[in-house]
Computed example of a mutant assay.
Amino acid sequence: MPTSRSLTGRRRSRSGYALLACGLVGGLAAPAAVAASPGTQAGQTGASVSGQRQPGPAAPRGSVGLWTSVNASHPTKSYHGLTDDVARVGKRALRNNPELNGVWRSFVTMGAQDLHRRGTIKEARLVIRNTTSQSCAPYNVEIWDTGRIYPRTTWNTQPRWYHWLHTLHPGSSGNCQNRTLSFNVTADAREAQKNRWPSMTLGLKASNEKSSDAYKTFAPSTARLHVTWS
């Protein structure tokens, strides 16, 4: 059964792409709404627990959207609304702030209502700002289709990682801080269109969760779903 997904407003970019805006947390207004519920996952990289997507109602248009991060070193703690506009991926290991150390993963819920129109999705990409990188070496970042999230989602209750969508290989040339990364999420957008999901939740994690050099942060407020139609 299809996952419950969030509604969103749509606006047009100058390039003509349809932009589906990501919701925000921490009291920031957003043109997205969200319907979210927890899933389960074993906690191993890329390993998912058996289970089925659970249906649920979409939230009213205009609600505050949802994103969150989880931390393996604090497996029962919810970080929803506690990390400002910072979504973390990979292993953080610094002496001056042990509370933030550990392996991080992050999730954003994107509205999918506007994908239900007639037509063929040629390409869909999640565009998001990579604000910091521990190293400029090309440590990979993965994006997955995942189950829904709640404000109380923790590492131990993180949603199921359904399937891998894209691995980005950020190069070491140029500035590796405050740059825009673009992930191919076409397969998920097509599924959202086919099954009429009101939302789609995407999970970000480092391919290498053992090296602290792979640690990166993202700004969820910059997340946009860019869709082109054929």
Rank of each mutant, 00 (worst) to 15 (best):
T3M: 14
R5W: 13
R5G: 15
G9S: 15
S13A: 13
A18H: 15
A21M: 08
A21Y: 09
G23M: 04
G23E: 03
G26A: 04
V34W: 08
P38T: 09
G39V: 01
Q41G: 11
G43D: 00
G43Q: 00
T45F: 15
G46F: 02
S48W: 05
S50V: 08
G51V: 02
P55Y: 04
G62F: 00
V64A: 14
G65L: 01
T68R: 02
S73G: 01
S73H: 04
P75G: 02
S78A: 06
Y79S: 00
G81F: 00
T83F: 06
D85V: 08
V86E: 10
V86F: 05
V89P: 06
K91T: 01
A93R: 15
R95Y: 12
N96D: 15
N96L: 10
N97M: 07
N97Q: 09
N97K: 09
E99N: 14
E99I: 13
N101L: 04
R105F: 06
T109S: 15
M110G: 03
D114M: 09
R118A: 14
R118W: 11
K122M: 06
K122V: 03
K122S: 11
E123H: 10
A124K: 07
R125A: 06
R125Y: 07
L126Q: 03
R129G: 01
R129T: 12
R129M: 12
N130E: 11
T131D: 15
T132V: 08
C136F: 10
A137L: 12
V141W: 02
E142T: 06
I143D: 02
I149C: 06
I149S: 04
R152A: 15
T153L: 11
T153G: 12
T154M: 05
T157I: 00
Q158F: 06
Q158W: 06
Q158H: 13
P159D: 06
R160T: 15
R160S: 14
Y162L: 10
H163T: 10
L165N: 05
L165I: 08
L165R: 05
H166L: 08
H166R: 09
H166E: 10
T167K: 05
H169L: 12
P170D: 06
G171H: 12
G171K: 11
S173Y: 14
Q177K: 09
N178A: 12
T180E: 09
L181T: 09
S182K: 10
N184R: 09
V185K: 05
V185R: 03
T186I: 02
T186P: 03
D188E: 14
A189W: 07
A189V: 07
A189Q: 09
R190I: 09
E191T: 15
Q193E: 07
N195K: 14
R196F: 05
P198M: 04
T201R: 07
L204Y: 08
L204C: 03
K205P: 00
A206P: 03
S211V: 07
S211F: 00
S211K: 06
D213H: 07
D213E: 10
K216V: 10
P220M: 02
P220D: 01
T222C: 05
R224G: 03
R224N: 09
H226G: 06
H226E: 12
T228F: 07
T228C: 07
W229G: 02
